[in-house]
Computed example of a mutant assay.
Amino acid sequence: TIITEEQAISLTSAITSELTQMGQNVLTKTVSSFFSVISIGIFIVLMPILVFFMLKDKYIIMKWFKRFIPKDSKLTLSIWKEVDEQIGNYVRGKVMEIFIVGLVTYILFILFNMQYAILLATLTGFSVLIPYIGAALVTIPIALVSFFQFGWSSDFAWIMISYGIIQLLDGNVLVPWLFSEVNNLHPIAIIIAVLFFGGIWGFWGVFFAIPLATMVNAIINAWPKKNEVTEI
């Protein structure tokens, strides 16, 4: 015989071991991915609810926080007022970004008579809430719809190129310009904040980079200047 009984047993054991190891790896990755998807889903559901109630009951929340602030603490109240104003500006700026990106993307899709233009443009607009990752995720359905409608044609290529340009302009031009206008932050400060906080906390650092930069800027603006301290 070409293969002896011992060789067959050894080969069977090796295959069984490999399949077992492969199954364990697949199971581990599946469970890990499942919990990651669940976590992202919970975040997506809870964040809008949290923002809604914070905006709806902001005066109640502010009143609750004031209980822990000394009545004569002018500096603390000044910082709180500045932070509240700047965060409000940030929310308005983000709403403007969603509208602009969604509108420009919708115009692009309409020019090419693309199917599901409103839905895809809406998804693109809201994708700016999750920097970089949101745009990457939305690119998948846009590419699929465009491919099934146009195939490997020049229309497909132009749509994807134009969509990529929109994303580049949003991240590198619109965001720095828009938030520097509404939050009085220089575009360089915004870029540095994204790099700094993203380097420290990864994805969440990028997500909260502008609010954190806004808060730091508000504290700096509200902090007494040297001449003010001298007068006091």
Results as ranks from 00 to 15, higher is better:
V104S: 04
F65M: 12
S33N: 15
L50M: 09
N217V: 00
A143K: 10
I42E: 00
P131K: 05
I161M: 12
A8V: 07
L75I: 15
P70L: 08
I110K: 08
K58S: 14
A222V: 00
A218Y: 03
T30W: 08
W158N: 14
N183K: 13
Q167L: 08
N89V: 06
F35K: 13
T1F: 08
L174K: 06
Y59Q: 12
K225H: 11
L111V: 05
L19N: 13
D170Q: 11
K71M: 08
I107P: 00
I15A: 12
F68V: 01
I142Y: 01
P224W: 08
N184M: 14
G125I: 02
F126V: 08
K56M: 09
A209E: 04
L119G: 03
V173D: 00
G151R: 05
I140Q: 09
L55F: 09
V206G: 11
K94H: 08
V182F: 14
V83T: 09
K74Q: 13
V45S: 09
A222M: 02
E181Q: 14
F197L: 08
I130T: 09
T139M: 14
K71L: 10
N217C: 05
T30P: 01
F65C: 13
F126A: 01
K81G: 09
I133E: 00
L137E: 04
L50F: 10
I100N: 02
T1P: 12
Q115G: 13
I210N: 01
I219E: 02
M47G: 04
Q7I: 02
I100E: 00
F147R: 06
I38A: 05
G205K: 07
S180Q: 15
I61V: 08
L168Q: 14
A143F: 11
A14V: 07
I9D: 10
M47A: 14
F203N: 11
L212P: 02
F109N: 00
Y116G: 01
F35Q: 12
L120W: 01
I210D: 01
T12S: 14
S36W: 04
L27P: 01
S13Y: 03
E6D: 06
I166Y: 04
F65Q: 12
K29D: 09
S32V: 10
E85G: 15
P224N: 05
A14K: 10
V145N: 08
K58C: 13
E6Y: 06
V45D: 01
S154I: 13
V216Q: 01
K226W: 00
K56W: 08
I140C: 06
A218D: 02
A136K: 10
V175A: 11
I60Q: 01
T30M: 13
M114N: 02
I79R: 09
I49W: 07
S78W: 03
I165D: 04
G198Q: 11
I60M: 05
L123Y: 06
K225D: 10
L77I: 04
E85W: 10
A189S: 14
S32M: 12
I98C: 05
E228G: 10
M62N: 15
P224C: 04
F52R: 12
M62Y: 11
L111R: 03
A143H: 09
F150I: 04
I220W: 02
D84V: 00
T139K: 13
F207R: 03
T230H: 09
G102H: 14
I69F: 04
G93H: 07
A117D: 05
W223S: 14
